[in-house]
Simulated scan of single mutants.
Amino acid sequence: MNKQEYRIGLYVLFAEMLKEPTEEFAQELPDMVQYCHEAFAALGYNIPLAAYQGWGRWADDVQALKDAYLRAFVFPPDRRLVPVESIYRQWTFDETAEVPIAKEKGYLMSDAALHMLELYKQYGLEIPREFRSMPDHLCLELEFAAFLLEKESPTRQAVYIREHLDWVGDLCQDAFSLEIPQFYREVVYVISLFLEHELQAVAEAS
């Protein structure tokens, strides 16, 4: 497997980890740990095994994993993590916008979301119904990155990664400050480390 294939595989894997877990997903966690270890080594990404080696212990308890998912991303509303780009961006940079939230953060369907909608349209991609109000959810953005790695030039791939995946460090900080369940705190942490390396790699290549 070459480096590009490992990168694609990691984007897809991390997207799956942000979806509601299934029994099949839980059973595959030990294999995911091994894959991450191999992929990070092949890519030269210095991400410690200690950050994710514990994922495998959830393999036999899908109900605990589902409970952790709900507490991390669903309720209570004031303590959940919202892995959506718009939440971390200024709502719009349109100077003519007169709505009160124009220059604020924390709202859905920002300029970032509208740009993602345009990208999906450009490539003929459909958004799953559950993500219609948040087309810039991190799991969709990770899947789209994998799509671009397969279909597009390195230049377009780099532009997308720079424009849409540079906010996950802030998401990671929130995962720790909100004290979401350990499994998903670790998942967001490892994703953020991976994307730091990705952002550095595209910066060095440009």
Rank of each mutant, 00 (worst) to 15 (best):
M1K: 06
N2D: 15
K3I: 09
G9E: 13
L10D: 14
Y11W: 10
V12G: 00
F14E: 10
F14C: 11
F14T: 03
F14V: 08
P21R: 10
P21V: 12
T22V: 11
F25P: 03
E28N: 14
P30D: 07
M32Y: 14
V33I: 09
V33D: 08
Q34Y: 12
F40W: 02
A42M: 07
L43N: 00
L43D: 02
Y45K: 01
Y45W: 09
N46W: 00
I47A: 03
I47T: 01
P48G: 02
A51W: 04
Y52N: 00
G54A: 09
G54Y: 06
W55M: 06
R57G: 00
W58I: 01
D61R: 08
V62N: 01
L65R: 02
D67V: 13
Y69F: 15
P77G: 03
D78V: 07
R80V: 15
Y88C: 06
D94R: 00
T96E: 05
T96H: 03
P100N: 01
E104H: 04
K105Q: 14
D111L: 00
L114S: 02
Y123L: 01
E126Q: 13
E130D: 12
D136L: 09
C139Q: 03
L140E: 12
E141A: 04
E143A: 04
A145P: 02
F147L: 08
L149I: 05
L149S: 04
E150H: 08
K151I: 10
S153I: 06
P154Y: 13
T155W: 12
T155I: 13
V159P: 00
V159W: 03
R162K: 15
E163D: 15
H164W: 05
D166R: 07
D166F: 12
W167I: 08
W167G: 07
V168N: 03
G169R: 11
A175W: 12
F176K: 13
L178F: 15
L178C: 07
I180D: 09
I180S: 07
Q182S: 15
E186L: 05
V187M: 13
V188E: 10
V188N: 06
Y189M: 10
Y189N: 10
Y189P: 00
I191C: 09
I191E: 08
S192E: 14
L195F: 08
L199R: 11
A203G: 01
